[in-house]
Write a protein that binds this DNA or RNA. Structure first.
Length: 612
RNA sequence: GGCUCCGUAGCUCAGCUGGAUAGAGCAACUGACUUCUAAUCAGUAGGUCGCAGGUUCGAAUCCUGCCGGGGUCACCA
């Protein structure tokens, strides 16, 4: 049990013994004492004053004396309803030793509860972009945080490998690919396939533009357009109908989809081939980000399961079939709409597949807790999905959670593929590494290392900068991504935190004897105590991050700890400290800080270099 | 329009399960490297916490309304 826990326990006891109040730990508020007051922790007495019916001064004295008599604090002071407490030095010394020596500080023992985290979930017609990166980093970090807090976590993604989009790429490759492959061209597989998607779209656009000027196009415009709608407005809103009704390319793409659904050998072979190229490309990106999955799901193999569930719901009469054959669920009594579950031709829609996937996962892994990391544009979709699972009485329906995050904007506005403003994941990764490399070269600290080692460090720093930049923002907030700031390595950044760690490693390398002097009566400075208090907050913040599925909590924690260490480092000498006791203590303290920094950054998926 | 998320310094963000004088970083300016890694530190400057009410010992934080922005309300995914 460490200082903070001891304090909580004793306060609960004190309130019981002194005032006959029965409270639990969660009822009491303990703050880190603000720097302008003496003490490290502050007990907020306000909530108890009306119940105790005594003056704050009197209550503070009683509780303060109580804590003193138990040997926890050396002194206290009372300001209004705040009881500021100074913890006795020996507790701090023990605490520093513990954190430095053991690696499980704050870690929750595995309790076996299973949870599935779904993230990334790309389409196979395009390479990953900035939006995916936010998704992937959030998902990965939530996985780490849940694991650290004792869950049995499975990382998964659902890959949208079927549908009209991939057929567009396939068709374009058939038409204009000339039999080329990623290997022939040296183009990364996902980009290779994405290029054909773009090619399809631009040819389609040309076809559409020509049609607009044709007799048929003009006729449609004059007969279908709404009052006051300009020709330009009309055609931009008519694109989908054109694709489905008149487009030659559209017809060919749909033919391909049908032929895929009928299991046509050549089509399926091409489909497999192109998807494989994409997966090879994705793997490289995931690898650069240090991401792996335990299990992939593919929509091509889960949508059938979804249909089964729909039939199940029909049998139980919680869904209904319209005259045209389409299947619906009515959620109006629950404050939502009617929702389509199967088209009239019996084919599945997006939500059908999600129903199937959830069921499959439950069957295969027995997890009744599922977290979906998906952008907030799909909030309603998940409300509906979860509600349907409740209607069906699925055992996992209570444990489904949509970790919704805001979309990523650029300083110039939204990312739009049509306008070519989408930030490509691979480009971005290359960019941050390049920046990290040129700064490293300039600093010169690692110039003498082997090339491999140098590359490793530069990778760690560049990726660390990118990851921290993305994760430090609360998930639900829309974020503005400025490419210039993302390669920033100073101030509130990943490398800043890595640098604190590196400084400690440098000290430890130079320090020969690492044995601690136990039982020393060294009195830590205010600065040193501040560092200790922050270390002791690690479990508190971890718990918060885990309960709220919010990695930004750990990002902010890491930053604060690193910042305090940097300040400490500038104010105190470690190796040439003023006394042997101070030296020993500071080494232990530095070791503790390094350990906690490494662990909290690890929760964000960020590695720590030993030199930089 | 219904529902929903967001609004804090010039910019990017913390703080939000009510607690002390609202904090960081970037950008600007000043200072600190023959001394454990200056990717650092110290300092100056920068605020009607979108607006208005309410709840109370106390509101950036909770409630209501309004304003501004995003998302969503497809037989798309």
């Amino acid at each position: 049990m460490w200082v903070r826990e001891k304090l909580e326990t004793l306060l609960v006891k004190a309130l019981g013994e002194l005032y006959n109040l029965s409270v639990v730990k969660d009822d009491i508020t303990i703050n880190v004492t603000r720097p302008e007051f003496d003490g490290e922790y502050t007990f907020v007495m306000f909530p108890f004053i009306p119940k105790i019916k005594r003056k704050p001064q009197e209550i503070g004295d009683s509780i303060g004396d109580y804590l003193k008599s138990k040997g926890l604090i050396s002194g206290y002071n009372i300001v209004k309803g705040f009881l500021n407490l100074s913890i006795k030095n020996n507790h701090w010394l023990d605490f520093a030793d513990y954190v430095a020596e053991y690696s499980d500080f704050g870690k929750v023992k595995p309790h076996g509860e299973k949870v599935i985290v779904e993230f990334s979930s790309p389409n196979t017609n395009k390479p990953l972009h900035l939006g995916h990166i936010r998704n992937i980093l959030l998902g990965w970090s939530v996985y780490k945080i849940l694991k650290e807090t004792g869950y049995d976590v499975t990382r998964t993604q659902i890959i949208n490998d079927r549908g009209i989009a991939i057929c567009k790429s396939m068709l374009a490759w058939n038409k204009w690919g000339g039999g080329k492959t990623p290997d022939d061209t040296g183009i990364k597989g996902d980009h290779f396939v994405g290029d054909f998607y773009v090619r399809f779209e631009s040819n389609f656009k040309e076809e559409y533009t020509n049609w607009q000027l044709s007799e048929e196009g003009q006729l449609i415009y004059s007969s279908v357009h709404k009052e006051g709608q300009s020709e330009k407005e009309f055609f931009s809103s008519y694109k989908n109908q054109y694709f489905n009704l008149y487009s030659k390319l559209g017809a060919e793409a749909r033919e391909m989809l049908i032929s895929w659904e009928n299991g046509d050998r050549d089509t399926v072979a091409l489909w497999k081939q192109m998807n494989q190229w994409v997966y090879n490309g994705f793997d490289k990106t995931y690898d650069a980000l240090g991401i792996i999955f335990d299990k992939n799901y593919y929509e091509s193999s889960t949508y059938l399961e979804g249909k089964k569930i729909v039939n199940e719901g029909l049998k139980e009469k919680v869904f209904f079939r319209k005259d045209d054959g389409s299947v619906w669920v009515d959620l109006e009594e629950r404050g939502m709409d009617k929702k389509l579950l199967l088209r009239k031709d019996g084919t599945s829609v997006y939500i059908t597949q999600d129903l199937g996937t959830a069921e499959l996962r439950y069957k295969e892994m027995g997890a009744n807790k599922m977290i979906y990391v998906v952008a907030d544009e799909q909030n309603y979709h998940f409300d509906v999905l979860f509600e349907i699972c409740k209607i069906l009485n699925k055992p996992y329906s209570g444990g489904m959670y949509h970790l919704s995050y805001g979309m990523v904007d650029l300083p110039t506005g939204k990312m739009k593929s049509r306008e070519g403003t989408v930030v490509d994941a691979d480009d971005l990764i290359a960019e941050v590494k390049k920046e990290a490399g040129s700064i490293a070269l300039e600093k010169g600290e690692i110039n003498l290392l082997e090339q491999d080692e140098k590359d490793d460090i530069i990778h760690t720093i560049g990726i660390g900068a990118l990851k921290f930049h993305m994760i430090k923002v609360q998930p639900q907030k829309r974020m503005v991504f400025d490419p210039k700031e993302s390669v920033d390595m100073q101030g509130q950044t990943g490398p800043y935190i890595q640098n604190a760690y590196v400084r400690i490693q440098s000290i430890l390398r130079k320090n020969k004897e690492l044995e601690f002097v136990r039982g020393s009566d060294y009195a830590p400075s205010t600065m040193e105590k501040e560092l200790l208090v922050q270390l002791s907050e690690y479990p508190v913040e971890l718990k918060k991050a885990s309960e709220e599925f919010d990695p930004s909590v750990m990002a902010n924690f890491s930053y604060k700890l690193a910042k305090t260490y940097h300040r400490f480092y500038n104010e105190h000498r470690v190796l040439s400290a003023e006394s042997e006791e101070a030296r020993q203590f500071r080494i232990v303290l530095s070791q503790s800080v390094a350990k906690v920094l490494k662990r909290s950054m690890n929760l964000l998926g960020i590695d720590m270099p030993n030199k930089m």
